[in-house]
Amino acid sequence: MKKKDTRVFSAEHRKFLKKRKRNIALVWSLRIGLLALLLGLWELSTQLGWVDAFLVSSPSRIAKTIASLYREGTLFYHIGTTLWETLVGFAIAVAVGYGVALALWWSETVRKVLEPYIVVINALPKIALGPLIIIWFGTGSSAILFMTVIVGVIVATMHMLSAFIETDKNKILLLRSMGASKLQLLTKLVIPSSLPAFISMLKVNVGMAWIGSVMGEYIVSRAGLGYLIVYGGQVFRLDLVMSATFILCVLAAGMYFLVVLLEKLLVKNTEN
């Protein structure tokens, strides 16, 4: 969708643009260089026997482990399991959180009544619910989904509620002076003006969803990346632990990137 830029700039501005471009290139090459350096050092120190590769694994061993998981045909099974749990849990948490926040915005009484409950549930370490979850949901993926949802939903609710409540008072006054109903306040003002908060809530919840799904797999699962990590730890296969962690990093980054893309798409029209 990018239009070709045909504007003509002054020499000084061209210089500025060039410098800026060079700066961006520098930052990126340093980023990649740093990663290569760290991986290189890691590999080297295990190759030369400075540290025990059995305990810290190494890039090459991680690559080999992933390759063998792939050959065994279980790589995508584990990735798929965790990814599915995370995405579905994320979607449910976001949808339910948003809905609850709307309801709480709508009724001040309900909000006041529920406030202390929300604060307490938010403060509760969700892992404490582990045994209950196993008993209620068994050891299948519904237990993990529940964990993912419970970790994300409170954050989503609180994040959106505070955005809804902070809606500009003068803009509300303006709409009321036009005779707006509560529903109109919501659709014309509260929801659109909280779009930036919605995006930042999504970003936070990407992290929450991974925490939830991996934590859920720690407690109950027989498949998934969290399961691989726990299993690898139990049988002392640190290569497996590291490989699963690495894949998690890549997936989480990918999901975050998707949200950023969504942000570009949604916010494109609203601010310049």
């Binding site: 803009k171 303006l174 005779g179 707006a180 003006s193 609203t270 601010e271």
Partner: peptide, 26 residues
Amino acid sequence: GYMLQKDELFRWRTIEKNIYLPLEIK
């Protein structure tokens, strides 16, 4: 019609859409 100290235009709407706002509300 009420006009406030600040313009209170909605930043996510174009000027045209902002001007139509009271028509939508009513």
